[in-house]
Amino acid sequence: MYKNYQSIKISEQCLSDQWPPKPDRALPTYVVNLDAPPVERWKDIVANYKDELNDLLAYMKTFIVEISPELKFLIDLVDTKLPAMADTLPAPYGDEMKGISQGSGLPLGEVVLYNVFYEVSSFCTSVVGQDQDGNIFHGRNLDFGGMMGWDKINHTWALTEKLRPLMVQINYTQNGQVLFKTTTFLGYIGSLTGIKPGVFSVSINERNALRGGYIGLIEWIYNINRNQSFITFAIRDMLTKSESYDQSVKYLAEVPLLAPCYYIIAGPKPGEGVIITRSRNGSDDIKPLGKDNLWFLAQTNYDNWKKQPIYDDRLTPCIKCMQAKGKNQVTFESLFNVLSSRPMLNKMTVYTSLMKPATGQFEAYWQLCLDEEASCRPW
């Protein structure tokens, strides 16, 4: 179905035939042993991805200012301030970055740049749903790399394509057991999407706001204010330390942050789901599962209580599709179909993750939006 909004052609779908994805779309899985010294944890893994990491970082340095002129300061600091920044980060993150630098051969400043980049740029769709029996499911699309180098021949975003070879699932172990799992880009040590079995699952969406993450980065780099957390390190802290859904929600709602964002959290028990709309210093809104008698929550990159921008309304089609599926169809299959439907699936979408907090079930698949199947938006 196509709708014309002020000359913007948007394809809206609610598909039912995308599950199951082919086995070769499952992301490769690696183990990071938290009992090992932080500087050693990533060395062997990143050594196999040297070319991909070098290619990505070279491209990022060239085109990062296309996102915003304000970000040029990061490029200017790659060889001066950013290497020293690793020593200012809370443990174990600085030492892990040093290990990634040693294992990949990348300069430490470039590894730091890679790991702080999410603070200032990403798009996403996240959904939490509860079925008629009270089971909680959590799905998310990660959209990344838009506005950086549109390839007119292949109709793709260049940065998005350079990220694809780095998509992995990481199982973090402690005392020989899996403590939590994440979907990430290899070499990136924060957590964008993760699950701690039996405790909670979480995804993060960028919040489009004036004076976003780059202000917090400036404050951190120049030691103006370091009493704040990087938004993806806050997630990993909870995945490592949290013992309950409530503890995770409270922390992510209150911790001072470098950047505004949305935290989408699901728990193992009925009714445990929430969207936390974060400013840097607190929560602007907390929307629990069940509000307005809704059995699901959906979030993209704009405040969910406001009218969505006409050029990027993924929320309204997502809500329509979830309502069409119904409460009796909250499964990995239905969530994957929703997240594989346009415009939730778009040119920036790189993966879909599916999580069930109660059991720890966690699956992640690469995604690719092709124009020949239906009109596919560039953002």
Rank of each mutant, 00 (worst) to 15 (best):
D303W: 02
C369P: 03
L56R: 12
L252W: 05
D133G: 10
E363D: 13
L239A: 05
N154D: 13
F73M: 14
I195R: 01
G198A: 03
P165M: 07
P378R: 09
Q323H: 09
L166I: 09
A36F: 00
G360S: 10
I319P: 08
N337C: 01
L368M: 15
I218W: 11
Y59T: 10
M238P: 04
K3I: 13
K269T: 05
I170S: 00
F336G: 01
T359E: 02
S341A: 02
N208H: 08
A364E: 04
S242N: 13
D55R: 13
E110I: 04
W19H: 10
P37W: 00
A298D: 13
L354N: 08
T300Y: 14
S334T: 14
L210M: 14
E70K: 15
K98T: 03
E52T: 09
K61S: 06
K250E: 15
K347I: 03
P28L: 08
D17R: 11
S104I: 04
I189T: 10
Y93W: 12
D246T: 15
Q367C: 12
V128C: 01
G105Y: 05
L106E: 03
D237N: 14
V199N: 01
K43G: 00
K196D: 01
V199M: 07
R211H: 13
I75E: 12
D303E: 15
M147H: 10
E119P: 06
P23N: 05
G99N: 04
P288W: 03
P270Y: 04
T62M: 10
P23M: 03
I265C: 05
E372W: 12
E272D: 09
Q130P: 13
L57K: 04
N115I: 01
E66L: 08
L315A: 00
Y262Q: 02
S353Y: 06
I215M: 11
P107H: 02
N293K: 15
Q102F: 11
T183K: 05
L217G: 09
Y5W: 07
G134S: 10
H138Q: 07
N281M: 14
Q361S: 15
F230P: 01
L15P: 05
M97C: 04
V127W: 03
M1Y: 09
D51E: 12
A253Y: 03
K61Q: 13
G267A: 06
L192P: 04
K98S: 11
E254F: 07
T173D: 00
F362V: 05
Y365R: 11
I10S: 06
L82A: 06
R236S: 04
P165G: 08
M148H: 08
R314S: 04
A26I: 14
R226S: 07
G282I: 05
A86I: 09
K152A: 11
W305Y: 11
F180P: 00
P20N: 10
L339N: 00
S7D: 11
Y30E: 06
T160G: 06
C376H: 08
G267E: 02
G216I: 09
L315W: 00
V330T: 09
Q13F: 07
V78G: 02
D131Y: 05
S191Y: 01
L354D: 00
N205H: 12
V112K: 01
Y188G: 02
Q132T: 14
Q174A: 08
I235T: 09
K347P: 03
I221R: 05
I275M: 08
K162W: 07
L53I: 05
G282L: 06
F73S: 07
Q174F: 03
N54W: 12
E119M: 08
K61R: 12
Q299L: 12
S244I: 06
N281S: 14
F296K: 02
P357G: 13
